[in-house]
Write a protein that binds this DNA or RNA. Structure first.
Lengths: 159, 159
DNA sequence: GTTTTTTAGTTTACTTGTAAACCTTTTTTA
DNA sequence: TAAAAAAGGTTTACAAGTAAACTAAAAAAC
C-alpha cells in the first residue's frame, strides 16, 4: 500500500478548505458587527442570485433539511436581512425575500471573498484560478444532480 | 450592483462540493456495511498519512475542538479502526494508532475517491484536475497557517 | 526543589443541526 | 367533487458538535 496523500483527494481538499474559510472569516464578521452565523451566508447567496424563493428550494440547494432552514431563516429574520411572505399562488408555501439590508450585504461579502482569494492565491496564476473554479463548478453540478435528481437552479439564472 | 454569481467564489464552491460529497458517499458506505460516520474519515486520513499522533494534533488538523475529537475517537474505537495508547514520553498525552482494519480502510476509501473523481470530472482534462488540486492545496496551506499559526503536518510528511 | 502556570485530555452543560410527527393546503384519483 | 395521497412548513424530540469547567501531568518561574 502506498503512502496516503490527502492532497490528491477532492473530498479532503474541499472539506478542509471550506471549514478553514469559515474559521478564518468568522472573527472578521464579529468585529464588523454582522452578527448572523456564517452558515447563513449560503441562504443569502441563493437570494442574491434569485430573490423570492421557497424554503423547500433553499433546503435542496444548501443540502439541509427543512427544519434547519426554518431555524436559519429565523436568525436572518431577527437580523432583518430577509422577510417571509406567504406565497400567493400556494397556501402552503412561503417566499423568502431580501430586505435592503440583506441586499447591501452582497457587496460586503463579495469584497471579503475577493480579498481572501487574493491573499490566499498569491502563488497561483489567474488562469489556474479560473480552471480551479471551473473544475469545482463541474463537480458541483454533477454532484447536485446525483444527490437532488435535478440541476441547480442557480445555473439557469446565471449562465 | 451586478448579479451575484456564486460560481466565482471559493467559499461557495468548496462548501457546497464538500457537503455534497458527504451526502453522495454516505449511502454507499451504509450498503458496504462501514458504519462509522463520514466525518470520521478525516481522522483516518491523518492517520494514514502518519500513524501514532496526538489528539491535540488531530484537533488542529481537522479544525475541531478537543471534545469533538474525543467523541469521534470513541466511535472509531468502537468500530475497531483505531486504538488509543498512553504516550510513553508524556503522561498527559495519548497516541492514536490505526488497527489493521483501520489500515485496510485506506484502499477502500481511496478507490471510492478515485471512482468519484472519474465520474464527476468527465468533462475536465487531467491537466485541469491537477491544477484544481494545486490551487486548493495552496489555499489549504495558507488558510491552515492563518488559522493555526503553523503549517500543516501532512505537508512535511508528504511532499 | 517547591510553587505557579501551562498543556493534553475528559466530563458536563449547552448550542446547533436533523429526523420524525404534525398541521394545513394542494394535487391526485376514482 | 369527495376521499386519499402528497407536499410545504412548523414543532417536538433527538443527535452531533462545542464551550467551559475539571483532572492530571509537565514545564516554567522563582
Amino acid at each position: 500500500m502506498t503512502k496516503f496523500n490527502p492532497y490528491n483527494h477532492f473530498g479532503f481538499l474541499t472539506n478542509r478548505v471550506a471549514r478553514l474559510i469559515v474559521k478564518a472569516v468568522e472573527p472578521d464578521m464579529e468585529t464588523d458587527g454582522h452578527c448572523f452565523p456564517a452558515s447563513c451566508i449560503g441562504i443569502l447567496a441563493e437570494l442574491w442570485a434569485k430573490d423570492g424563493i421557497s424554503q423547500k428550494y433553499l433546503g435542496t440547494a444548501l443540502i439541509k433539511n427543512k427544519s434547519s432552514i426554518t431555524k436559519m431563516l429565523l436568525a436572518l429574520e431577527d437580523d432583518e436581512l430577509i422577510v417571509k411572505v406567504n406565497d400567493p399562488e400556494d397556501g402552503r408555501g412561503k417566499l423568502i425575500y431580501l430586505t435592503q439590508k440583506g441586499r447591501d450585504m452582497q457587496d460586503i461579502i463579495e469584497a471579503k471573498s475577493g480579498e481572501m482569494q487574493e491573499m490566499l492565491l498569491t502563488d497561483c496564476s489567474n488562469d489556474e484560478i479560473v480552471i480551479a473554479k471551473k473544475v469545482l463548478a463541474e463537480m458541483y453540478e454533477k454532484l447536485y444532480f446525483k444527490v437532488n435528481g435535478h440541476n441547480p437552479f442557480l445555473h439557469e439564472k446565471n449562465e
